[in-house]
Design a protein around this nucleic acid. Structure first.
Lengths: 222, 222
DNA sequence: CTATTATCGATATAAGTTTATCGATTGGAG
DNA sequence: CTCCAATCGATAAACTTATATCGATAATAG
């Protein structure tokens, strides 16, 4: 929705910009590879991946190409190497610390999901304005008072904030984050938040996906 | 990810197919309109919307055009009429019943989110295999044993299932849904599920969004 | 050893989406 | 009343993304 080019040839290096749809599919490939019986499958072809994931082999090949991996004709890609290449490309081997704002149901769902660690994200703690919610959260993560946020971000040099607060509070939390030096915000509140240009925001809008689903459904029913 | 055209001129009517990105933005516009002080703002222009939402006026105008609304030069669109046009277009005035599978943190987050009703979705109940989770859920919604699902779907003619179960269980739940006549699945499990062609699946993949966010962040840091 | 076939990688084409351009219309100022 | 500025709506151009084509390479069978 924010139409920044993902790679504006930033580093001076001549490198192809990465298409966002490709970027979104990479975790899907990774998850697929993770679920393969690696003791059995040493190599995997685009054709096979495409078939299992309902994509075209051409698209799979093009997506994987951007990770720099090279395959062998007639065989495909080394399963393990491919998985590592994706992890490397996505930066999942350099975990980022994140602070979660909001310990409602959604916040707790995010906090208790232990899969983020393997995606390079470590939620170090949550904060919530409601004293009743403070204390111990899932997976030994602490839920702290909102006032602790600023200190925590500065002390731990946290660069990512996850906003899972009610719509009305989203902008003020975002402002707080920016003032503490947060550089990326993952926003689950159904609100447009405004931040300086050097801060990246990723909106997670459930209503958008729902709209797509129900529109498809209604069109089929005609 | 599933590349069906959203509107394959289905009804015989000559109508433009709707672009998915447009479909995803419509709820954003709707939410924006909802938050306007309607007693003050009777009309709103594309320019204004675009500015507030960080989009281009041209794109806003094109998106809104597909709802069939007509604006007045120099004034813009009637705020109320626009909101209704979006709701109508997205079918939010004909709520769909849905059944939720899985009452973990994510499931409860979805169940307790009372905003879905205004998006045309009514989660009538949840089911969970774990007896400890069964009973009363948020907002007076019942959490029932998994075995009740089939009967409930058939009895209430439910067409939409929401899957918020662990990855390993996702496919078998999907199979159950299909066998009961479910026509649309909103899948929050990080697993590719396979269904017959006449069933619509919308994947909600948090890892994909996270990949986009962290990639943007790492590129900026270079 | 050679022929065959599956697969990759690169280039080219097509499809889809966004952005730009332009004329038409309307409200308000002079 | 006439002119000006803002806006819409439609069409065209630019850009992005997906799909198709083709030659090269490696495993396998004969």
């Amino acid at each position: 929705m924010e139409n920044l080019p993902i790679d504006p040839a930033a580093g001076g290096e001549e490198r192809a910009p990465i298409a966002e749809p490709t970027l979104r599919r990479l975790p899907v490939y990774h998850n697929y590879l993770k679920n393969l019986d690696s003791s059995k499958t040493h190599a995997i072809s685009c054709t096979q991946i495409a078939q299992d994931l309902h994509l075209t082999p051409i698209q799979v090949r093009k997506d994987l190409a951007c990770t720099g991996i090279v395959g062998k004709p007639k065989t495909g890609y080394d399963t393990q190497a491919l998985r590592l290449a994706i992890e490397d490309f996505l930066g999942w081997n350099n975990p980022n610390d994140a602070l979660l704002f909001g310990a409602g149901h959604l916040g707790l769902a995010l906090l208790s999901y232990d899969g983020f660690a393997s995606y390079g994200l470590d939620i170090v703690a949550a904060v919530d304005a409601d004293p009743a919610k403070q204390g111990a959260g899932p997976r030994d993560k602490k839920i702290l008072p909102l006032e602790k946020a600023a200190g925590l971000i500065r002390r731990m040099h946290i660069k990512i904030a996850i906003i899972a607060v009610p719509e009305a509070a989203a902008q003020s939390i975002a402002d707080l984050c920016v003032s503490c030096g947060i550089k990326a915000i993952w926003n689950f509140a159904p609100a447009k938040i405004t931040v300086p240009a050097d801060v990246t925001v990723q909106h997670e809008n459930l209503a958008s996906s729902l709209a797509v689903l129900s529109k498809k459904l209604s069109l089929r029913g005609e």
